[in-house]
Amino acid sequence: MILATGLYRASHLVAGIVAVAQHQRGRPVAWAALGVVLVTSLLVFGTARSRGWFGTWPPVADTVAVGCVMPFVVFAGGARHPADMAWVMLLGGSASSVAAVAFTRRAAVYGVVAALALTHAAGYRLTGADMAVIAGNLNSVVASAVLAGVFWWYLRRQGSLLDAATAQALAAESQRARYVERIAHHRALHDTVLATLTTIASGRVDANAPLVRERCASEAAYLRRLVQQHADGEPAPGTAAALEGAVRSAESLGLRVSAQYHGLPEIPAHAAAALADAVTEALNNVLRHAGTGHAYVTAAREDGRDRVVVTVVDQGVGFYLEDVAKGLGLRCSVRARMREAGGAAEVDSACGEGTRIELSWPA
């Protein structure tokens, strides 16, 4: 609307410049009036462009200076015929269009249009214009306000419909994502916890056997994470599922993982995949190098931001940080992967004090 009304004003300014240059070049008042209109127009539309909207005082100043005062200034400067006043009367149309868009109250718009109509009628009467000329000008002032108001109403209505459609699509996608996540959890429960319980209930295995107890502990940890995810609200299915896949992969190799997820925000798929792959590599390093069978994974939203921070901690043997550059795991599979996805990875370790890896997205 700023662009549309600005172009409308620009067309009137072009007509004014041509009219003054051709027929009133010897009248300093006409040139001064044209300069004031140019400055006022730049103020109104420049301010609107920088602020994102018209505000209140610039349109009021435009209405008073350009629409109501300028016709009498031009008349006082020697314009005694209707044709000499035509260029400044045109500006009333663009002034009324700005008012129709800028003012939210209809009473204010009606007041502006009425003031412009009375001013222009009085200005033309001073030059002895006939009723056809006056009626044509008043029609232009009123029609400009009506057309701008209708156009503005139509754009807002289309914007509301688009917002409603977008919200409906997001709700449908969110519901679909929750359904997919629920089905994935059902399948995982069927293949793990339910299968274990069914086997124990059938009596085909010894419930006190070390392997059975280890499997039960792993699946109990999975159930606790599942319950915690839903207790914390609605975490992003893609983020939570990706991290859970990395944890389950490490648990399948015999590593015990204590994982917690807290209010994860929804992040792009490539970022969730990068986090999961980095967590997988970090847990693999625990298996290979840490000398411990237990790791801790915590994933949470950073306070006040849609930023995910994941930490992988172990209480193993640790290492010297200067040796990291010699290995490909942390350098390529963790740091480089996070950097390519727009995230970051920090490693903190010391011999005999374990290792802490912090992954964040965005960086």
Rank of each mutant, 00 (worst) to 15 (best):
S174D: 07
A129M: 04
H294Q: 15
A33P: 15
W53M: 11
A188H: 01
Y8P: 00
P59D: 02
A48W: 15
A299S: 14
A220R: 02
F54I: 02
G136A: 12
V312W: 09
A30H: 15
A350K: 12
R215I: 01
L223A: 01
G92P: 13
R106S: 06
A4C: 04
T104E: 14
R256Q: 12
T239H: 04
A274S: 09
T311H: 11
A242G: 10
N139G: 11
H12Q: 01
R178K: 13
G263E: 06
P210V: 04
G93H: 00
V133A: 15
R49K: 10
P28Q: 13
A336F: 04
V133F: 15
D306K: 03
A108D: 13
A115Y: 11
A336N: 03
G136S: 11
G352I: 01
D62M: 14
G316I: 02
P59L: 05
L38R: 13
T40K: 04
A164E: 13
R307I: 10
I2R: 14
A271N: 12
T47K: 00
R156W: 15
N137R: 10
L90K: 01
A143Y: 11
G327N: 12
R106M: 07
L243T: 03
T63R: 03
A300H: 06
L243Y: 03
A30S: 11
F72Y: 06
V88Q: 04
G327H: 12
V98K: 08
V324L: 07
A241L: 00
G67D: 09
Y320I: 08
S50C: 10
S258D: 13
E234Q: 14
Y179N: 03
L155D: 08
D232M: 04
A250T: 00
V312R: 09
G233I: 06
T104N: 12
T104G: 12
G46I: 12
R80W: 01
A184T: 09
L90E: 09
R356L: 04
L321V: 13
A231I: 08
A278Y: 01
R331A: 08
D130F: 03
S258A: 12
V88G: 01
V334M: 05
V205H: 11
R215T: 02
A108S: 13
R356M: 07
A217Q: 00
G354M: 12
M85I: 01
D323H: 15
S94C: 04
H270I: 09
L126G: 09
G203E: 05
L13D: 01
G123L: 07
V347R: 03
E234I: 11
G67M: 05
D306I: 03
A76L: 07
R178H: 10
L223H: 02
W87F: 07
Y222A: 02
A48G: 13
